[in-house]
């Protein structure tokens, strides 16, 4: 009898493999954790979009929880995301923008047209800060805690649903 049961082992292994691979089919291949989670926000030295003479560094992000949003005028999804960012700003979330691979003129025009939820926007025409953040397509958002450590990375579009279900809970979670 036990010998008969031993014959079932390959079948069970096969069933386990099927379940494993079947689950893999339903997973989003683009979803993966950021390499920067629990690490310090990378150092930068960038001017602001408004003022080419005003230079900021990462001390900007110390002291309170901040959502850093990487956007660009050339990015259509960023336009769709603006209402959600404005809603977050209304709810008291501090936002800092990174105008990524853009021109000053286009960036300013974008904010005039779609609204400006940002306390300040950093101007990153070469994409150096974006590169250090591992950004591979705007929009991307990074939640930085009061110590300047990256706590959450949102790749792509923040939907109205995400505002309530993901972003606000994360902001509250890392509140000092």
């Amino acid at each position: 009898m036990t010998r008969r049961l031993l014959l079932l082992i390959p079948l069970l292994l096969f069933a386990a493999l099927v379940v494993f691979l079947y689950r893999g089919l339903a997973k989003d291949p683009a979803a993966r954790d950021s390499a920067l989670l629990a690490r310090d926000f990378p150092a930068f030295n960038l001017t602001t979009l408004d003022d080419p003479n005003r230079t900021l560094d990462r001390s900007l992000l110390k002291g309170q929880v901040t959502l850093v949003n990487v956007w660009g005028e050339w990015c259509p999804t960023c336009k769709q995301e603006m209402p959600q960012l404005l809603a977050l700003a209304d709810r008291g979330v501090r936002l800092v923008g990174v105008d990524y691979k853009d021109t000053r003129e286009n960036g300013r025009q974008f904010l005039d047209e779609f609204g400006d939820p940002f306390e300040v926007s950093l101007f990153d025409p070469e994409g150096t800060l974006g590169f250090d953040l591992g950004v591979y397509g705007a929009p991307e958002s990074f939640l930085v805690d009061a110590e300047g450590v990256i706590r959450y990375h949102h790749t792509g579009y923040i939907t109205p649903q995400d505002v309530e279900d993901v972003i606000l809970p994360e902001v509250n979670k890392w509140q000092p």
């Binding site: 993966r32 390499a35 590169f131 591992g134």
Partner: peptide, 8 residues
């Protein structure tokens, strides 16, 4: 590259 973009 890994420190920015992960093991991917």
């Amino acid at each position: 590259m890994v420190s920015r973009f992960g093991d991917y």
